[in-house]
Measured scan of single mutants.
Amino acid sequence: MAEQVALSRTQVCGILREELFQGDAFHQSDTHIFIIMGASGDLAKKKIYPTIWWLFRDGLLPENTFIVGYARSRLTVADIRKQSEPFFKATPEEKLKLEDFFARNSYVAGQYDDAASYQRLNSHMNALHLGSQANRLFYLALPPTVYEAVTKNIHESCMSQIGWNRIIVEKPFGRDLQSSDRLSNHISSLFREDQIYRIDHYLGKEMVQNLMVLRFANRIFGPIWNRDNIACVILTFKEPFGTEGRGGYFDEFGIIRDVMQNHLLQMLCLVAMEKPASTNSDDVRDEKVKVLKCISEVQANNVVLGQYVGNPDGEGEATKGYLDDPTVPRGSTTATFAAVVLYVENERWDGVPFILRCGKALNERKAEVRLQFHDVAGDIFHQQCKRNELVIRVQPNEAVYTKMMTKKPGMFFNPEESELDLTYGNRYKNVKLPDAYERLILDVFCGSQMHFVRSDELREAWRIFTPLLHQIELEKPKPIPYIYGSRGPTEADELMKRVGFQYEGTYKWVNP
């Protein structure tokens, strides 16, 4: 592979701008107003304001973009700056750019259920340069409990009458099928589907988006991507930290609602779906819905739930269990780990287990898709061969690698495990991989909904998990304890083995 010439960040961002501006969906010269509902909250200060700053800094926003914060707290732009700027990672050389960014910011205080507050917000936006005809993007960085009041008031008082209007809704989209349907029906009564952007930030990850290209742009994968060759698929999300004093919020939802029903299920769809007619948003989402419709409700015998306990040999936070978090209700049975087996009941995947695993306070930070292939028929190497695996590593250190057998150097035919490896950090030294939120917010500006969740996708996802969630809430089974920093409950490994996964433990990928 030829040595790549190092590029400056300015040059890299210039390439990104060229890609972005050559499309006809990006209205570079139009006025846009980006409204952050819930501007005083954690999500706004840690993710949304920093993301908008990065896009502005790199010249990736339309030229005439204004940012308006809205929340109940009586704040000023200076207050917003004070709480969000520490997350910007701005350099001293960017000081003038930073001043320009905050000059485009404003803030309006108001209630979430008060019509007069929204009329005041609308008047404020109209007073901005060309504000009355601007395109408006409303980001709901809010708890779902206020979605209905907020969307109703936005629709009645704050819509642009000339430009387009788009609304970005953060997960969780309800707690179960019934609450999700209620919320979807409410929002759909106010906005068209092409105006609604239900954001799952995992769909903005580079390697998640790469799944489609790997599958449908490489001839070698087509013939082997089926039940005849693939023994099982494992989708993993692991965090090495616990709730760390923020367990009160987590306890309301648990690990299945927080990660599995959305992030992991979306990745499953991209692995299992048929080739779409095109890369058009609805063509892709149509195929994802077909996959979900082929999955039956989760069966309790295919589920393992766990909850982390303190590690007596650990240090600091590792010595504390979930129930030691003062914000967690006493005696909570909320799971911090889950392993679930699903089956896609169609011709391509009949009988292939899709194993979804996620948890907190585990032994490493990792998100990946792992396809394990069947054993080689007619073994001539005296059971020395391990199964081939194709691994798409989402985070950290984005990579695609194939675990395969090669001859060990020497005189004899002794096979050993090795890999074919594409590590993004080595291959793409001159490429700026956008943060997931950067990519998705740019998608909203461009009107691309491919990486957002459609209402029928959402409904099918909740259909699969709601009976299990209701059973857990009714019966309150005690989750299996696992030690902070471990791989999780051993019962999860036993479940995976029972459905056909072979864990060798003899080879570990190392970032080159």
Rank of each mutant, 00 (worst) to 15 (best):
L7V: 15
L7D: 15
V12Q: 15
C13G: 12
G14V: 09
G14S: 15
I15Y: 08
I15E: 11
L16Q: 15
E18T: 08
E19G: 12
F21H: 08
F21I: 15
F21D: 13
Q22C: 15
Q22Y: 14
G23Y: 11
D24H: 10
A25E: 15
A25H: 14
A25S: 15
F26I: 09
F26K: 14
F26G: 13
H27C: 06
Q28D: 09
D30Q: 13
D30H: 11
D30S: 14
D30R: 14
T31F: 09
T31D: 08
T31A: 09
H32L: 05
I33E: 06
F34T: 07
I35Y: 00
I36F: 00
M37C: 13
M37H: 12
G38C: 03
D42N: 05
D42E: 00
K46A: 01
K47G: 00
I48M: 06
I48F: 03
Y49Q: 03
Y49T: 04
Y49D: 02
P50A: 09
T51K: 05
T51N: 13
T51C: 08
I52S: 04
W53K: 02
W53T: 02
W53P: 02
W53V: 02
L55W: 04
R57P: 04
R57V: 06
R57H: 05
G59A: 07
L60Y: 07
L61E: 04
L61Y: 05
P62R: 06
P62S: 07
P62N: 07
P62H: 07
E63D: 13
N64T: 08
T65V: 13
T65S: 09
F66T: 07
F66K: 11
F66R: 13
I67V: 15
I67E: 03
V68N: 02
G69A: 09
G69E: 02
Y70G: 03
A71K: 04
A71W: 05
A71E: 02
A71S: 11
R72D: 03
S73L: 04
S73C: 06
R74Q: 14
R74P: 15
R74C: 15
L75K: 10
L75D: 06
L75H: 13
T76G: 08
V77C: 12
V77E: 12
D79F: 06
I80P: 01
K82G: 09
K82P: 06
K82S: 10
Q83T: 10
Q83I: 11
S84Y: 13
E85S: 09
P86I: 08
F87G: 06
F87A: 08
F87H: 13
F88N: 05
F88L: 14
F88A: 04
K89S: 13
K89I: 08
A90C: 08
A90Q: 08
T91R: 14
P92G: 11
E93I: 10
E93R: 12
E93Q: 13
E94H: 11
E94W: 05
K95T: 12
K95G: 13
K95H: 13
K97A: 09
L98W: 03
E99K: 10
D100F: 11
D100V: 11
F102V: 05
A103N: 14
A103T: 11
A103Y: 09
R104F: 07
R104L: 10
N105E: 02
S106Y: 14
S106P: 02
S106K: 11
Y107V: 07
V108Y: 09
V108F: 12
A109S: 11
A109Q: 12
G110I: 01
G110H: 00
G110P: 04
Q111E: 13
D114M: 10
S117Q: 08
S117T: 09
R120P: 09
R120F: 13
N122S: 11
S123Q: 15
S123V: 15
M125T: 14
M125I: 14
N126S: 10
A127W: 10
A127S: 14
L128C: 09
H129T: 14
L130R: 14
L130Q: 15
G131T: 11
G131F: 09
G131C: 10
S132W: 12
S132I: 10
Q133A: 09
A134L: 08
N135D: 10
N135P: 08
R136A: 10
L137S: 07
F138A: 03
F138E: 03
L140I: 09
L140K: 04
A141N: 04
L142C: 04
P144Q: 03
P144Y: 00
T145W: 02
E148I: 10
A149I: 14
A149R: 14
A149D: 12
V150R: 03
V150C: 11
V150K: 00
V150A: 09
T151V: 10
K152H: 14
K152S: 14
N153D: 09
I154R: 01
H155L: 06
E156V: 12
S157F: 12
S157D: 15
C158D: 10
C158T: 14
C158Q: 07
M159Q: 14
S160N: 13
S160E: 14
I162V: 14
W164Q: 07
R166H: 08
I168V: 08
I168N: 02
E170P: 01
E170V: 01
E170A: 04
P172R: 01
P172Y: 04
P172L: 04
P172E: 06
F173P: 02
G174E: 04
R175F: 12
D176P: 02
L177D: 09
Q178I: 15
Q178F: 12
S179M: 05
S179W: 02
D181K: 06
D181L: 08
R182P: 01
R182H: 09
H186M: 10
H186N: 10
I187W: 03
S188V: 08
S188F: 04
S189C: 13
L190E: 07
L190I: 13
F191E: 03
R192M: 11
R192K: 13
R192A: 12
E193G: 00
E193A: 01
D194Q: 13
D194T: 12
Q195S: 10
I196S: 04
Y197L: 00
R198A: 04
I199F: 06
H201R: 04
H201A: 01
Y202N: 04
L203Y: 01
L203H: 00
G204E: 02
G204Y: 03
G204I: 01
K205Y: 06
E206I: 07
E206S: 05
M207N: 09
M207G: 06
M207E: 00
V208C: 14
V208R: 01
V208P: 01
N210H: 03
N210F: 04
M212E: 02
M212V: 03
V213F: 11
R215I: 02
R215D: 02
N218L: 01
N218T: 03
N218P: 04
R219H: 08
R219P: 09
I220G: 03
F221S: 07
F221I: 08
P223N: 15
I224E: 06
I224H: 06
I224V: 15
W225F: 11
N226R: 06
N226Y: 06
R227Q: 08
R227D: 05
R227K: 13
R227E: 05
N229W: 02
N229R: 02
N229Q: 13
I230V: 12
A231Q: 12
C232H: 06
C232G: 13
C232E: 07
V233Y: 02
V233R: 01
V233P: 05
I234V: 14
L235F: 10
L235Y: 05
T236V: 06
T236L: 05
E239P: 03
E239S: 06
E239W: 04
F241S: 04
F241Y: 15
G242W: 03
G242M: 03
T243G: 08
T243A: 06
E244T: 10
G245T: 07
G245N: 12
G245C: 10
G245I: 01
G245Q: 08
G247A: 06
G247M: 06
Y249W: 00
F250N: 01
F250D: 03
F250C: 01
F250V: 00
D251E: 06
E252Q: 15
F253I: 05
F253H: 06
I255R: 01
I255E: 05
